[in-house]
Computed example of a mutant assay.
Amino acid sequence: MINLDFLNKNVIGTFSTIDGDLIQTRMFQSLWVEGNKAFFCTGAKKDVFKELTKNNSVAFCIENNQSPVVSINGFVTFVEDINYKEKAFKILPMLEKIYTSPENPDFKVFYINIKEVKTFSFEEGPKKYTL
């Protein structure tokens, strides 16, 4: 079993979605991890939101100290629970400038239900963990 706590310390990575026949990548920040769920946020008017509502299969790849590269793969679920939205605003206060409040209907919180973790380092080579 792999410990996912490193995701709470290494928050910036490459987020990959599917747009038709193409994979789209962008730099993204994770917010927090609970169990096998990594939480993120976005806006309802952004391309990433539109892509996620059409195909919820994603990957998030980061570099960390345990292993140089870690990729989490799974499926996205959006949550409307105000507690999650308020937590996101506490973690990223700059969200207030964009969305004004957690109640803004354009503000979306989602999580990756992590199904698989892949790691790679030159010392250990590739590894795969299924959750």
Rank of each mutant, 00 (worst) to 15 (best):
N3G: 09
L4K: 14
D5H: 10
F6A: 05
N8F: 08
N8K: 15
N10D: 13
I12T: 15
G20S: 02
G20E: 02
D21H: 05
L22Q: 13
L22D: 12
T25L: 01
T25P: 01
R26E: 13
R26S: 13
Q29E: 15
S30E: 11
L31A: 13
W32N: 08
E34L: 02
E34C: 02
G35K: 10
N36C: 02
A38S: 12
D47T: 13
D47A: 13
K50A: 06
K50M: 08
E51R: 07
L52T: 08
T53E: 11
K54W: 03
N56E: 05
S57Y: 02
A59N: 00
A59S: 15
I62P: 03
E63N: 15
N64V: 10
G74A: 03
F75H: 03
F75W: 05
F78I: 09
D81F: 06
I82A: 06
N83T: 13
Y84N: 03
E86Q: 14
K87C: 04
A88C: 12
A88G: 13
F89Q: 07
P93Q: 13
P93K: 11
E96M: 06
K97T: 04
K97M: 07
I98H: 10
S101F: 04
P102N: 09
P105A: 08
F110G: 02
Y111Q: 07
Y111S: 08
I114L: 00
I114D: 03
K115C: 01
K115V: 01
E116R: 08
K118A: 09
T119R: 06
T119M: 06
T119S: 11
E124A: 08
G125Q: 00
G125V: 00
G125T: 01
P126L: 00
